[in-house]
Design a protein around this nucleic acid. Structure first.
Length: 710
DNA sequence: CACCGGTTTATTTTT
DNA sequence: TAAACCGGTG
């Protein structure tokens, strides 16, 4: 026996040792999923003797990838860079850097992020004189991405969106390619194209990746699924780990169905169920099970733990949000007094804007805290500007970057001038940069003069890049562009300049890692990292309370967890009220949040809170009432009130249980949250109910326990 | 072209 | 509340 199998239970051991053929591991929250993944990889390399670079592990976040890499490398005492452990996107970027020329792109292609995509869609909308108010650019961008992945879905759209998409999608794609840019979706789609069109490339990677592991499989979208299918060769050594109950990214295209699809595509797949939880007390697990069992379609599984029963969940309801935040702060105080460290504690909320009131109270009460996942470093304006400069220096024909910084800092080159130049350049299908000196220019002398000076600036900087070292180059860049001077008159100038200098450090580090490469390659690599690793080494303050969204908490664990603002409309969000599918996703989010807690779990809510400046009051979150009474201790406002526990829907045989509620058109019903209503329509498993004016018409799950026939 | 002030709008977001 | 956006004026 060797240490690779230490401290693994039999199910985990099975998952680690079953190396050949397709394997699916269903891993409940806290069941030691990461441990299984890393041990399996180590086992493959160390015991089975597979060379490290023949194993591919795909994760969703850089954080997860890095953690896995370092754990394996440490255990096996090998350098991390021999391992192919990466996100879908960086894996694709890496493959495309070598092969993208086969698809007509240039090797030094740049990656645009979501904000850039939205910006481009917005510009296209304006160019085409389409109404920006009718469809929001952000929303339209999401549709564009969807159509890129699934062109056939265009037919499902109604006017005017359909017409917009028909025009925008090809224009958007043309523009990206023209500027040698790819977006996140392209990274996946182009890799798929590459594999489909070039057998020799595909064969090459089939030989290379003899074993493939995919983490968080429930979060894969259809394109990623396709990519995995193409990637796995005849050996079919594919290992997936997932938990459908933790799928919380459907709004981004994640498709839980992929888990089921896997079982049909690989009917011989071995199945391992990891149900033993190493994280939470049984009280927390039971409560989490209570909540999640209200979801209709799922593979039934019940987590258990050896951590004992633990204490009941405490639900505090205050009059106002002030009571609520103070309860949280005071409880944190008490916990710390009992020996908890600040870093053992997390405050989780559904939407970012909730953090503000908690921050205020934390500050007042002098409790050290950090807010995770606000504006990431690379999304800051000054960094995006610098990136645009760097991209333009690398590729002067990049119109998009050109437009971003041509007048940043102010050079008196306004929108009109840029528009004219763009139109002029478009007639020759050339870049703006290349036509500045053109004799035919329709631009005024003054404007042309300013543009020429700008062009000179960029050309000079390009020379500087080639002739001096990176540190000097970056100094020259902020100096010559006038960016540094601009920041001097900026309130936040100091911080911004510091951020820009941070970039300098990053380039230096990358250069060390790729010492032999030439400057262009190094800079390309830096820009790729910036695009793909958006907030990787967000510096973690030690020993502080963590405030973050429930989404951000996925994969983490804390001794004590507060889930706050548990009110209808706040969590679950109001949007989910009339969509059973969205409500189920909210419920999974609740499940994820609850299972973050190791020892203590707190729910809080307020009778009244300010929303967008207006005082509002909401009923208690349905999720609280989906938990058995004996698991919750009520404090604050509702202390004396009996709670209305709603039993879970039986999930076991959902097939012929349709008559369970036996709701028909015209029936009068009573809903535990919305009150009385009349059924106006019934479909297979849903029904449409008209409630009184406060709630209006809603579509709900027919068999949901919250509905009772009157 | 730049700046001021009124109006509008409001999830989550690994890449 | 707060930030983004638009339209008018200097």
């Amino acid at each position: 026996m060797n240490a690779l199998f230490d401290k693994l239970n039999s199910a985990q051991l099975d998952a680690v040792k079953s190396t050949e053929g397709p394997v699916m591991a269903i891993a409940g929250a806290g069941s030691g999923k990461t441990r299984v993944l890393t041990r399996r990889m180590a086992h493959l390399i160390y015991n089975v003797g597979v060379p490290p670079h023949h194993v591919l592990a795909i994760t969703f976040t850089n954080k997860a990838a890095n953690e896995m890499k370092s754990r394996i490398a440490e255990r096996l005492n090998i350098p991390t860079d021999t391992l192919w452990v990466s996100t879908f996107h960086s894996m694709c970027a890496r493959i495309l850097r070598t092969h993208i020329e086969k698809l007509g792109y240039e090797r030094h292609f740049q990656i645009v992020d979501d904000d850039d995509s939205t910006q481009m869609v917005k510009m296209l909308l304006r160019d085409m004189n389409l109404d920006v108010k009718l469809v929001k650019p952000r929303t339209l961008k999401n549709h564009v991405q969807k159509i890129k992945a699934h062109p056939e879905l265009l037919e499902d759209y109604k006017e005017p969106v359909r017409g917009y998409l028909e025009k925008i999608v090809p224009a958007y794609q043309r523009q990206l390619k023209r500027n040698n840019l790819v977006d996140f979706e392209d990274l996946l789609l182009l890799t798929i194209d590459l594999f489909k069109q070039h057998d020799e490339v595909r064969k090459y990677y089939h030989e290379q990746f003899q074993y493939v592991l995919v983490d968080e499989f429930q979060d894969t979208n259809d394109v990623q699924y396709e990519l995995i299918r193409l990637l796995v060769g005849a050996h079919r050594n594919l290992f997936i780990v997932g938990d459908e109950d933790q799928s919380i990214y459907a709004f981004r295209g994640a498709n839980i169905e992929n888990i089921r699809r896997f079982t049909t595509d690989y009917p011989d797949a071995k199945r391992v169920l990891l149900e033993e939880n190493y994280r939470s007390t049984n009280t927390i697990l039971k409560a989490a099970n209570d909540v999640i069992s209200h979801n209709k379609s799922r593979i039934e599984k019940t987590l258990y733990s050896t951590k004992g029963e633990g204490e009941p969940i405490v639900w505090f309801k205050g009059y106002t949000y002030r009571d609520e935040t103070e309860f949280v702060a005071e409880t944190i105080r008490r916990l710390v007094h009992q020996g908890y460290r600040y870093e053992d504690i997390a405050v989780l909320y559904r939407a970012n804007n909730t953090s503000r009131v908690f921050e205020e109270t934390m500050m007042q009460k002098q409790i050290p805290y950090q807010v995770v996942g606000n504006t990431s470093f690379f999304k800051r304006k000054e960094i995006k500007d610098m990136v645009a400069y760097l991209r333009l220096i690398l590729n002067p024909d990049d119109n998009y970057s050109f437009a971003r910084i041509v007048n940043e800092p102010r050079r008196g080159i306004g929108q009109k001038t840029v528009d004219m130049l763009q139109a002029f350049a478009a007639t020759e299908d050339a870049s703006m940069f290349s036509r500045i000196d053109d004799a035919q220019t329709p631009l005024k002398k003054a404007a042309t003069g300013k543009l020429k000076r700008f062009k000179e600036l960029i050309t000079d900087l390009r020379k500087a890049l080639e002739n001096v070292d990176f540190n000097t180059f970056m100094d020259t860049l902020v100096e010559k562009t006038g960016y540094k001077e601009m920041l001097q008159y900026d309130d936040m100038g100091d911080v911004r300049l510091e951020n820009v200098m941070e970039l300098k450090t990053m380039i230096a580090e990358t250069q060390n890692a790729y010492r032999d490469n030439d400057k262009i390659d190094v800079l390309t690599q830096v820009l790729e990292d910036i695009a793909l690793k958006s907030q990787e080494d967000e510096r973690k303050d030690t020993n502080v309370v963590t405030l973050m969204t429930l989404h951000a908490a996925k994969g983490l664990e804390f001794r004590a967890v507060f889930i706050v603002a548990l009110e209808q409309g706040m969590f679950p969000l109001a949007r989910s009220f009339d969509s059973p599918a969205e409500l189920e996703e909210e419920r999974r989010l609740m499940y994820v949040g609850m299972t973050r807690a190791k020892e203590k779990l707190f729910f809080t809510s307020a009778q009244q809170r300010h929303l967008y400046g207006e005082p509002t009051s909401n009923p208690d979150s349905v999720f609280i009432h989906e938990i058995r009474d004996e698991l919750i201790r009520v404090e604050g406002l509702n202390k004396a009130v009996t709670r209305s526990y709603t039993r879970p829907v039986r999930t076991a045989p959902p097939r012929d249980a349709d008559h369970e509620n036996d709701i028909n058109k015209g029936d009068k019903i009573n809903h535990s949250v919305f009150g009385r209503g009349v059924v106006v329509n019934v479909t297979q498993d849903q029904c449409v109910i008209a409630f009184n004016k406060d709630h209006g018409i809603k579509t709900l799950l027919k068999n949901h326990p919250s509905i009772k026939k009157v």
